[in-house]
Computed example of a mutant assay.
Amino acid sequence: MKRISRRAAIGLAAVMLMAGGAGAAQAASTVKVSLWDKGASAEMPTGLAYATPGLDITKATMGIKASPGSVKAGAVTFKVKNDSKDTIHEMIVMFMADPTKPLPYISNENRVDEDKAGDKGEVSELDPGKSGTLTVDLKAGKYLLICNVPGHYGAGMWAEFTVNP
Rank of each mutant, 00 (worst) to 15 (best):
F95D: 04
S107Y: 11
G129D: 12
M94D: 06
K130F: 01
I106Q: 10
P128M: 05
A117R: 07
G132Y: 06
G132F: 07
D119L: 07
K116V: 06
D119K: 09
D113R: 05
L134F: 14
A97R: 09
G132E: 04
G121E: 09
G121M: 07
T135H: 03
K130I: 00
L126Q: 03
P99W: 09
M96E: 14
E122I: 00
L126V: 08
L126K: 02
E109A: 15
T135Y: 09
K116M: 12
T133E: 10
E125T: 01
E125G: 02
T100W: 08
T100E: 12
D127G: 01
A97M: 03
F95C: 01
D115L: 14
D115S: 15
A117G: 11
G129N: 13
M94R: 07
G121D: 11
Y105M: 13
M94G: 01
S131C: 09
K130N: 02
D113L: 12
G132S: 11
G129W: 15
K120T: 15
G121C: 08
G121S: 11
P104S: 07
L103C: 09
L103D: 10
E122S: 03
S107P: 00
K116Y: 06
A97C: 02
P128A: 08
E109V: 10
V112F: 08
M94K: 05
K101G: 10
L103R: 02
P99C: 06
D119M: 10
G132Q: 05
D113E: 13
L103G: 05
T100N: 13
E125M: 01
V123K: 04
S107D: 15
Y105V: 15
T100D: 12
T100F: 07
S107M: 12
E122A: 01
V123C: 04
R111M: 15
I106A: 11
K116N: 06
M94L: 06
P102T: 15
E114S: 08
D113M: 10
D127I: 00
V123S: 07
S124R: 09
E125Q: 05
K120A: 15
V123P: 08
T133W: 05
D119F: 08
D119A: 12
K130Q: 08
N110A: 13
N110I: 10
D98G: 03
V93Y: 04
E114R: 06
M94Y: 10
N110E: 11
P99Y: 10
D127Q: 05
V123E: 11
G118K: 06
V123I: 12
T135Q: 06
Y105H: 13
K101H: 11
Y105A: 12
D119P: 01
P104L: 08
S124I: 05
D113G: 12
D115Y: 15
E114K: 10
M96R: 11
